[in-house]
Amino acid sequence: MNEVTLFPEQASVFAQEVDQLFWFFTVVCGLAGTLTALVVFVFSIVYRRGARRYAHSGHHSTLLEIGWTLPVAVVVMALFVWGAKIFINLYNPPESATEVYITGKQWMWKIQHPNGKREINELHVPVNTDVTLNLTSEDVIHSFFVPAFRTKRDAVPGRYSRMWFNATKTGSFHIFCAEYCGTDHSRMIGTVFVMPEQEYQEWLRSGAQELLSMADKGAMVYARYACGSCHEAEERGPSLESIYGQQRELAGGNTVLVDESYLRESILRPNAKVTEGYAPIMPTFKGQIDEQSLNELIAYIKSLSSVPAERASMGGN
């Protein structure tokens, strides 16, 4: 690995898009910068003191000011539009993507696949497939960064954030933590393994780990905390059957889309948004349920619903 590289590998669809923009930028800004520097340089030589070319020239010209301001304004607006287009796509995961749950923690990445397979600091994904990462953190802010995919996003404690990519190249690529998180920040690194679909499926099924899916484990969490004692009787709490992906009416007249974030909040802060028709009597599970079990429980509740959640507004507006 000691060879010198000057440009990062392109291993995702984004990589190509971002690099295109980058090179366009480099050319435009490079030209503009070089040209300005060149003019300064030429003026320094041509009008140097000994040259005796001094001439009175005007010292203001509104026309000239407008003439050089407008192009700058137009160019930066164009660059803005291009950049914004890529960005909105970057943070809007598609609906039918393979999902992976990632929890940052000083100083490791804990990764869990929907079928229950877990790994640490390694992420196996299939090539040419949309993969969505659900990020959160157990302690401080981290940031999940894969340079070869040209994307990153912060993992913030207390909430989920999502990112996605479509890897175009098999191989292994760096994962970095990009947000400073303490002593071993620079050791919070890992590897993405991009594999052909077949190999990936084999990998997913292999291993000595118990192959309970996340949803199955979630069912155990559900039983452990006796969620059913309220949520199946239908008196104290609403049924969780098919709840995921629905619009629910809240006490107070607003509606809410039942998605991961709403479920998460309802477990940790039950009284924040209470479903219409129910008393806010659910105790909080904050501090009692760890991130992993929470993810599994949510996966279980999701599995009770056949409808995929509307993702239209996921990741932004």
């Binding site: 207390g158 909430r159 989920y160 954030s161 999502r162 809240l250 006490a251 107070g252 007249g253 607003n254 509606t255 809410v256 889309l257 998605d259 974030s261 709403y262 998460r264 909040e265 940790l268 802060r269 009284n271 924040a272 948004k273 209470v274 008393a279 806010p280 009597i281 105790p283 507004s313 996921m314 990741g315 932004g316 507006n317």
Partner: peptide
């Protein structure tokens, strides 16, 4: 205001919710 629904607290609590979701009788335990 535009962060939801990515974040747990969401944007569905305002305005008006403050007035009508106050009937938290008491937490039984």
């Amino acid at each position: 205001g535009s962060r939801a629904p990515e974040q747990p607290w969401g944007k569905y609590t305002w305005p008006g919710a403050a007035h009508r979701t106050t009937m938290i009788p008491s937490v039984p335990v």
